[in-house]
Design a protein around this nucleic acid. Structure first.
Length: 735
DNA sequence: GAGCACTGC
């Protein structure tokens, strides 16, 4: 066989060196397609050769060959995400062995855009030899794709059907320092799997600060630590400045700093990090006013300043504004304009804005925290970590040397900030994760080798919930129902109610409700059109509960598909509705796979009642009981005082309500609320509502349920179930 | 009478 037509002739899997690889790269024939290279290939290759990681190809190949697990550190701009998987491809030669290389990313856009870039570099069409796989979109070809970029969640899903991950020769976990839930679980699974599958190689790619931790964690088979492969980055230096004294009001200090930069610093755009939508919009308004004042006072010295907000719920078209050029000087030769982007954490990892020279970092972000005692996840404004502060500062040095102004003292940075942001696994409700782990075949969840083990109470809460939902038996084993639930990309409560819904002849409707609950809020409320938006919402409100309203909104949306402006005219979020439709279709396919009937109850008298009963089957642990006269509820068992969220559409305050979420904002609220009947609680969740056990604390809710039970003993069950008089007091009385 | 940090299946 001629060497020129078989560029990989003589290559032995996992025994190649950089010299051979370079020869193949520089050749005229594409070794993976056997076709001549396209015109642009050589040009792209020249660019790749300038990446820091390229010059270390041989060192990498040696490390990769000699070790089953490698920890790799590559700073921003090193080229690791695009190049390392290609180096692995040349060493692994997965296409000759019917295998694939997986490279995981925490975000969908990253998986897509990196795959596109690498397909170009390898001179193959995207979706053939190089592809990507994300929810709702599989851009791979069976038997052809050997390099697959994918979201970490997607690989975790695959592990549930194939715990050996037998299709893969090498798995690369990229951005491991972000410590997403899925990446953390994958690290645990892959560590165990590596001991079982000696042919499987693993590369964990991360930022510097975490490397030693990962090295220690991945020391297996008698090794003390996994080897470290390090590549320098390619960024510009950033000067960091601290305040002399702590700032009592970080928003005010941030605004002041932005204006100071605008007045006194050389041209270059500014990035300011704040914590949320409201804070950002507020700061934008204030900066605009002050900047205008400044221009008025010093028209010859201060140029125009454009202020651009950035957060995830902003429509994509508005997010695009961050790429607009800074404003032109107002007069020819006048002082130059400048742009300031005011952003949440989204600009820390997900979005890169070129041309940023100044970063203003007040040192806070909203972070998820989980309180297992009351089973509540909430968002809290908290100090960021050192790693996060470094990441923020780095945003100033992507195109030229920059400056970062930290609105806290150097001493606070050194002494008060944590090294790393707490990994998500320590800040989340783990019910879903535990179900996934069990499905993958992990037996002992307490002894599972976590990189960071969650609090025992968090595990307890998750196991308890799954047991009450009958996903786990009393010995902690996955039940057939639990195995089915795990296959749905949903929280266990939602999966449970979807699976049981045919018993209430309402699976079509529950399917819709579950899909609507899986997407962001569909109701839009522009600040200047609140009245109109509220009126539009009132038109679609079903008085019996917010879940029923969601069903109604979806159905109306489907009936008005012909009208492109329908969503906007009715103050609904078109994107969210489309997404709900996508989710619904995916879940429907899942149901069909398990032969779960898709049925609708045609009896109008029990239509809504049956839906509410099905809701109880999943959410019986999220029920509250009205106490006293006012809008005051006590959650069952946990006895948390909560109020109906102002967005709630109920026209009365029913005695018993079921809620989708507990939110802790200005005060504790329950959101997305539907009226239920106490008889249903006793009937459909008898274990949870076992009034004889001590685990059910004494109190008003228990007394109320006891009296229901006493009454029920007098009557037949059938009688109580059809007794659908709507209790409750009128909610909206004269103010 | 309030909100949605950010992801992901």
């Amino acid at each position: 066989m001629s060497r020129s037509l078989e560029p990989l002739f003589g290559f032995v899997p996992r025994n190649v060196n950089a010299k051979d690889v370079e020869k193949a790269l520089n050749g005229d024939i594409n070794p993976f397609t056997k076709s001549p290279h396209s015109g642009q290939y050589k040009k792209i290759l020249e660019g790749r050769k300038k990446l820091p990681v390229y010059s270390q190809m041989d060192e990498f190949l040696q490390t990769f060959q000699a070790n089953q697990i490698t920890v790799m550190v590559g700073e921003t701009g090193s080229g690791k995400t695009t190049q390392i998987p290609q180096f692995v491809a040349y060493s692994d030669l997965p296409h000759t062995r019917g295998k694939m290389i997986a490279c995981t990313q925490p975000r969908r856009v990253a998986a897509m855009s990196v795959a596109k870039r690498v397909a170009d570099e390898m001179d193959v069409p995207l979706g053939k030899q190089v592809g990507y796989s994300i929810r709702f979109e599989d851009m791979t070809e069976n038997g052809t794709t050997f390099l697959k970029y994918m979201t970490d969640g997607m690989l975790l899903r695959e592990a549930m059907t194939d715990p050996e991950l037998s299709r893969y020769s090498t798995v690369i976990l990229d951005e491991a320092h972000e410590r997403t839930l899925a990446t953390d679980i994958l690290m645990g699974l892959l560590k165990a799997l590596a001991k079982k599958r000696s042919d499987l190689k693993l590369i964990v790619m991360s930022a510097t600060l975490d490397a030693v931790k990962f090295q220690k964690y991945f020391g297996i088979n008698g090794q003390k630590a996994a080897p470290l492969f390090k590549v320098p980055g390619r960024t510009f230096p950033v000067d960091v400045f601290y305040t002399q004294e702590p700032e009592p009001d970080y928003v005010e200090a941030a605004i002041r700093t932005v204006l100071m930069i605008h007045r006194a610093e050389d041209p270059g755009d500014i990035l300011l990090f704040l914590t949320g939508e409201e804070e950002i919009e507020d700061a934008c308004r204030k900066i605009r006013i002050e900047a205008d004042d400044l221009v008025q006072q010093h028209p010859d010295a201060v140029g125009p300043l454009s202020c651009i907000p950035l957060y995830s719920s902003l429509p994509p078209a508005q997010q695009q504004r961050i790429f607009d050029a800074a404003p032109q000087p107002r007069t020819a030769g006048g002082p130059p304009g400048r742009k300031v982007v005011i952003s949440t954490n989204i600009a820390e990892t997900s979005l890169t804005i070129d041309g940023i020279v100044y970063v203003v970092d007040p040192g806070f972000s909203k972070q998820k925290v989980y309180n297992p005692r009351i089973r509540v996840e909430s968002l809290l404004v908290s100090p960021i970590s050192k790693a996060s502060a470094q990441q923020r500062a780095g945003r100033a040095g992507r195109t030229r040397p920059g400056k970062c102004f930290r609105l806290y003292t150097e001493k606070d940075f050194m002494k008060e900030l944590e090294e790393q942001t707490y990994p998500e696994i320590l800040r989340s409700n783990l019910a879903n994760t535990i179900l996934e782990l069990l499905k993958v075949g992990v037996k002992d969840l307490v002894k599972f080798d976590y990189v960071d083990a969650p609090a025992p109470e968090t595990l307890m809460r998750a196991l308890e919930l799954l047991n009450f939902l009958a996903a786990l038996d009393d010995d902690g084993n996955l039940t057939p129902l639990g195995a089915m639930m795990a296959d749905f990309p949903l929280d266990p409560q939602l999966a449970k109610m979807l699976i049981v819904s045919p018993e209430f002849k309402c699976s079509n409707e529950i399917l819709t409700i579950v899909a609507m609950l899986s997407v962001p809020n569909v109701f839009v409320r522009p600040p200047n059109l609140r009245k109109e938006a509220d009126a539009a919402k009132a038109m679609m409100t079903v008085p019996g509960g917010d879940h029923l309203t969601m069903l109604n909104v979806y159905n109306e949306y489907m009936q008005n598909q012909g009208d492109r402006n329908w969503a906007r005219n009715n103050f609904l979020n078109q994107r969210a509705l489309t997404q709900a439709d996508n989710v619904r279709a995916q879940l429907k396919r899942n149901m069909e796979k398990y032969d779960i009937d898709l049925v609708t109850n045609t009896d109008q008298r029990t239509f809504y009642e049956n839906i509410r009963k099905a809701l109880v089957c999943g959410f019986f642990m999220q029920v509250a009981h009205r106490e006293g006269e006012k809008n005051m509820y006590l959650t069952v068992k946990d006895n948390q005082i909560v109020g109906l969220h102002p967005s709630c559409g109920l026209d009365t305050t029913p005695e018993w309500v079921l809620f989708n979420e507990f939110v802790l904002t200005s005060r504790p609220y329950i959101r997305t609320v539907t009226e239920v009947r106490p008889e249903w609680l006793l009937e459909y969740a008898p274990h949870y509502y076992d009034l004889t056990t001590a685990s059910f604390p004494e109190g008003e809710t228990k007394r109320a349920l006891k009296s229901v039970l006493a009454k029920r003993k007098g009557k037949s069950v059938a009688d109580t179930a059809t007794d659908d008089k709507r209790g409750g007091k009128k909610r909206k009385t004269a103010k």
